[in-house]
Write a protein that binds this DNA or RNA. Structure first.
Length: 771
DNA sequence: ATAGGGTTAG
């Protein structure tokens, strides 16, 4: 590289022959500060450099570097006959500013005499490069340190989630200033340790305005509005940021009236204030109010446009979103990403792909949006392909792309990839901090590794309500109702208030574990103990709980008497219960109502036709299928997939496209014999009657989950669990067969369907056949 | 002339 070569020359050929400054001077390249003619004359006369000349050249270097012109800066540097350490420092700092880390380090290593500035510049370089280990080593090697060095080290730790290390530095510093105090405060706030932040704040007076804002922002992020407000009220001085923080706090929490009142009271409304209001209304589903504010904004930037677009996207009004997207003056990556997400989640994956291909600059969010889109649309192979490409494309995953990637792993249940991400996350120093812990926890839950989920949960230092909810929900979905309730009891002792989401998980846990009485008790305790008003979703949980336990009468009574109109999910719970307990009449009634609510819900047709088939009403079952065809309802195709050696293998019904198809089918044929010996009978009455008996058996045999399980048994080493994911609910016959298979092959088979986890082991399933 | 911090909207 030219730059390196020239540097080497520079250092090996000292002293450099004096050159004519005038001719080497780049045109218009340095500040036209007045220079006395006498000095210039003197310079010309004896070809020597004065100190004030060096200063001028140094300024030139800095100017070039600030404009991103590293080459020009280097040219100036090379042309100098004498250099001070400032010249070197300016070069090093400039290289770092322009992300040329290696050049900076080379020059630092080669410079003749390093002063405190040089060390501090380099220290910051390592910190910015997030190489805390090397930064610390350099810090220890420094011949002397001043408060700048200490603060740089402190903030390095703080920004990368090493709160305890930051605290260590803070405690060791011989001298602290406002920056040091605020650095530690921000470390706590950014890493979610709001209680520590609060304690620190109370330990001293005379905080700067920024620190007041910082603490208030921390409370807002934790949704502790009362605490945030008390900080706001106690602040000795307020700036725009203080007002904007509290206003957006209220807006994000749906308290729009208070937000509006403060908006009017605020001395200044800037683009932040206005946008906070717009997004507040958007987040509370009040699109018209949001739009009217948006239209009245005196000044908009891309964030404001994006907030409004996101509002339309949320309501799946992609036409309106598109209109604004086309109309906005300058789109940033976020605008594109919002649209991509919107299209992908509305099922327009091709539209999403089109935008993705055409956007000027993709970031990790764009990739994640496509991956999530593909996996939600059942295209897990494309999802995985994009995932691998993303890692290649993004040179460094940042904290939020890690979180996105983790949630992608959760969606497609790619446990191995998730584990790898976990390792890379630790290496990058991101294992703690906002959201990352919860994302890891959720990943392990959804990927079906409840033990690793528990470990991840225990590693979260300051568990928030989301952490607890995720853990409880995870246990519930895995069928570990008792464990879920134990965690819930533990949560109550920590002083974290359960919220309505907690209670959904708790009720679901009772439901999956068949704990009717306990579930009812929890349901009544919601309001009594925690002041939580039961929402429709809680009633639906109760219908599910009672229904599964066979108390269909009670379930119906609850639906009649509850203060809400049942929605499709409520009726769905009743339908599921009717199916389990063979009550065709009730199931039919529920299904009819769901048809009216969701005429294109293919799952319901299939569930109902199975219900008919199960009770031998073949013609009704056939009618359902015909009606489905007439109405143009498309059946969502069933997929199952599993991860083997970092690859996702996807199967659909009767799939023969897999390279190991022959082995899989041979295995299943052999398994068939063994199954029969074990007493398994294929429940052929569960498929449509107008299929020939022989074909029926065939269809059942080749369901996607069976193919995936077979592949797993063949290619996953003995002793390891086989984890299969299905995008729909597991077929009843397959469920039955897999129970037997688990016994015959002596393997643990973990199946995630779109409702819960099934642990097949030794001939039985953790769902106890209720799902 | 060169080095350190933090807060608000998508």
């Amino acid at each position: 590289m030219g730059g390196n070569y020239r540097l080497r020359q520079l250092h090996s050929s000292c002293p450099i022959p004096t050159i004519n400054f005038q001719s080497a001077k780049p045109k218009n390249s340095y500040p036209s500060k007045k220079t006395s003619t006498s000095q210039n004359n003197k310079k010309k006369q004896n070809f020597s450099t004065t100190d004030s000349d060096i200063v001028k050249w140094n300024i030139a270097i800095t100017t070039h570097m600030r404009n991103g012109l590293c080459e020009s800066a280097l040219r100036v540097f090379n042309s100098m006959s004498r250099r001070s350490s400032v010249s070197y420092n300016a070069m090093i700092s400039g290289y770092l500013r322009n992300h040329k880390f290696d050049l900076a380090r080379d020059l630092f290593d080669k410079m003749p005499e390093r002063d405190l500035f040089s060390w501090n510049v380099m220290l910051t370089g390592y910190v910015r490069n997030r190489d805390l280990k090397t930064a610390r080593a350099l810090f220890e090697r420094m011949p002397e340190r001043d408060i700048v060095s200490w603060n740089a080290m402190l903030s390095g730790y703080a920004q990368n989630g090493f709160v305890d290390e930051a605290r260590e530095i803070f405690d060791k510093m011989p001298l602290k200033n406002g920056i040091s105090w605020n650095g530690l405060l921000a470390a706590y706030v950014q890493n979610g340790r709001i209680e520590d932040a609060k304690r620190l704040f109370e330990s001293k007076m005379d905080w700067t305005l920024v620190s007041w804002n910082c603490l208030m922002g921390g409370f807002v992020r934790k949704r502790r509005l009362l605490d945030a407000r008390s900080v706001f009220d106690r602040m000795p001085v307020r700036d725009e940021i203080s007002w904007n923080t509290i206003i957006s706090g209220y807006a994000q929490n749906g308290e729009m009236e208070e937000a509006r009142r403060l908006f009017e009271e605020s001395p200044i409304q800037d683009v932040f204030t206005w946008t906070a209001m717009v997004s507040g209304y958007v987040q509370n589903g009040k699109l018209d109010e949001a739009r009217s504010i948006f239209d009245r904004m005196p000044e908009k930037n891309s964030v404001s446009w994006n907030a409004m677009i996101a509002g339309y996207v949320q309501c799946k009004r992609m036409d309106m979103a598109r209109e604004l997207f086309e109309e906005m003056p300058s789109r940033d990556a976020s605008s594109w990403n919002t649209m991509i997400t919107g299209y992908a989640q509305s099922g327009y994956i091709a539209h999403a792909r089109n935008l993705f291909d055409n956007m000027p600059q993709r970031d990790s969010i764009s990739w994640s949006a496509m991956i999530a889109g593909y996996s939600q649309n059942g295209c897990s192979e494309e999802a995985l392909h994009f995932f691998v490409e993303m890692q290649r494309d993004c040179e460094r995953l940042n904290r939020s792309s890690f979180t996105c990637a983790l949630s992608t792993c959760s969606n497609i249940a790619a446990l191995e990839l998730g584990r790898q991400l976990h390792c890379r996350l630790v290496k990058a120093g991101y294992q703690t901090g906002w959201y990352v812990g919860n994302a890891l926890l959720a990943m392990y839950c959804k990927c079906g590794s409840i033990d690793e989920a528990r470990d991840a949960f225990q590693e979260i230092l300051e568990k928030d309500v989301v952490s607890w909810n995720t853990m409880i929900h995870g246990y519930a979905r895995h069928g570990f109702g008792e464990e879920a309730l134990t965690v819930f009891e533990l949560m109550k002792t920590t002083g974290i208030r359960p919220d309505d989401a907690t209670m959904v998980s708790v009720l679901a846990a009772c439901s999956h574990a068949g704990l009717v009485d306990q579930g009812s008790e929890y349901f009544y305790s919601m309001n009594r103990d925690y002041g939580i008003t039961a929402k429709l979703v809680h009633y639906t949980c109760m219908v599910d709980l009672l229904g599964r336990a066979g108390q269909l009468e009670e379930a119906q009574n609850l639906m009649k008497n509850m203060p809400f109109e049942p929605d499709a999910a409520t009726w769905g719970a009743l339908l599921g219960a009717s199916r389990i307990h063979g009550n065709t009449e009730l199931g039919e009634k529920a299904a009819q109502i769901i048809f009216e609510m969701e005429p294109h819900n293919s799952g319901m047709y299939i569930l109902l036709s199975k219900l008919y088939a199960a009770s031998g009403r073949w013609s009704d079952a056939g009618k359902m299928r015909l009606e489905m065809r007439n109405k143009g309802v498309k059946k969502v195709p069933g997929y199952s997939w599993l991860e083997v050696q970092n690859k996702i293998h996807t199967f659909k019904v009767g799939d023969t496209s897999h390279p190991h198809t022959d082995k899989i089918y041979t295995f299943l044929e052999e398994m068939d014999l063994k199954l029969k010996q074990e007493g398994y009978i294929s429940s052929t009455n569960l498929v449509f009657h107008d299929v020939e008996e022989e074909e029926k058996v065939h269809m059942l045999k080749y369901h996607s989950e069976k193919l995936a399980v077979a592949y797993g048994i063949l290619y996953i080493p003995a002793g390891r669990p086989i984890r299969v994911i299905k995008n729909l609910r597991v077929c009843e016959d397959c469920h039955n067969a897999i129970k037997y298979i688990s016994k015959i092959v002596g393997r643990l088979i973990i199946l995630r369907d779109n409702h819960r986890f099934h642990y097949f082991e030794g001939g039985s399933c953790s769902c106890r056949d209720f799902w």
